[in-house]
């Protein structure tokens, strides 16, 4: 009897491990999308955009509002509706990102860097409280059944289709961004501005336009990540931005801040670490895991996994 039980147990352990892995990868994809916003802004402006997490929340709330008010799913069919919805959310949150930069950061370009950080904190407080005043303090629920809830079995291992879609969507967006940054002329301008703004200006690059673009793309990705969280978990609240934001920031640091592939790797890795830690170490400490990772990485290797070791400019 005991001999018969063993393979079954090991299979179920394997299954459990795999469930945690897919869960971690789906969450990690979301972290990675948010982390891209941090890392792009940091790359060009050397500024940690503390309000980025709240742009993510705005994305989630905007997604819910647009979905409910236009009855998109009834008119277009679920797949097209979600695609249109994602584009709308990206566009709107991107515009809010540009406005944020104009109002809160642009006047502080020449100030000490920490003034901009305080301003970012103020902006974050403004955003989260505006959401609370508009939508109320209680959590909001996304309509259910938009994403398939079936589970796919590959070699007997369960893969929920929803998680697969979330992961695929984030990977497609990340690859799109990577190609855009690496292959297009505008992308080259962004990279040039990140390396040396003054030199980029001398080469005829409109750095202000680059900054505007970065403040569109980053928040757009963060906003769509908010939409994904709403669709995936079904429930959103006005304070979720800061915890997701902090974790995504950890992911950006983990991969090496300023480094776009780093944010992707860091996000996926952090998602998996967190999910495994919650399952195998302690679920109650789940939210602390990311912070431990953050502290350890900043002490041991502040440049992150893929970051280049550069001498600190003094």
């Amino acid at each position: 009897m005991s001999l018969n039980l063993e393979p079954y147990t090991s299979k179920s352990l394997m299954e459990q491990f795999f469930t945690q892995l897919t869960n971690g990868l789906a969450v990690g994809g979301i972290y990675a999308l948010i982390a891209l916003g941090y890392t792009m802004v940091y790359g060009v402006l050397k500024l940690i955009n503390f309000a980025h997490g709240d742009l993510f929340t705005i994305g989630a709330y905007l997604g819910l509002t647009l979905l409910a008010s236009f009855h998109l799913a009834d008119h277009l069919g679920v797949a097209t509706a979600l695609f249109v919805l994602a584009l709308m959310v990206m566009g709107l949150v991107g515009i809010i990102g540009i406005l944020l930069d104009r109002v809160a950061y642009k006047p502080l370009r020449t100030s000490p860097r920490l003034s901009a950080v305080v301003s970012a904190l103020g902006a974050s407080i403004i955003f989260s409280n505006t959401i609370m005043l508009v939508f109320g303090p209680s959590p909001k629920v996304y309509p259910q059944g938009l994403l398939p809830t079936q589970v796919l079995y590959i070699f007997g291992l369960p893969i929920p289709i929803m998680r697969l879609l979330i992961l695929l969507a984030s990977i497609v967006m990340m690859i799109g961004l990577y190609v855009f940054i690496q292959k297009t002329k505008t992308g080259t301008a962004i990279r040039a501005a990140a390396i040396d703004q003054d030199a980029a200006r001398l080469m005829g690059i409109n750095v202000d336009r680059v900054i505007m673009l970065v403040f569109f793309i980053g928040p757009a990705l963060g906003g769509v990540a908010g939409l994904m969280v709403g669709l995936h978990y079904g429930q959103i609240n006005f304070t979720m931005g800061w915890i997701y934001g902090l974790k995504a920031f950890t992911a950006a640091i983990l991969g090496g801040i300023g480094n776009i592939p780093g944010a992707m790797v860091g996000g996926l890795l952090l998602g998996v670490i967190e999910s495994m830690g919650a399952a195998y170490i302690s679920n109650a400490w789940k939210d602390a895991i990311a912070f431990f990772v953050l502290i350890v990485i900043l002490i041991v290797r502040p440049t992150g996994l893929l970051g280049e070791r550069v001498a600190e400019k003094i």
Partner: peptide, 22 residues
């Protein structure tokens, strides 16, 4: 963490206060 630059220190101290709360 004392040697960390301004904004990094900010993030790490936020992490610290959250770990203490948890």
């Amino acid at each position: 963490i004392i040697h960390l630059r301004g904004d990094y220190l900010l993030i790490v101290t936020i992490g610290m206060v959250e770990i203490v709360r948890i």
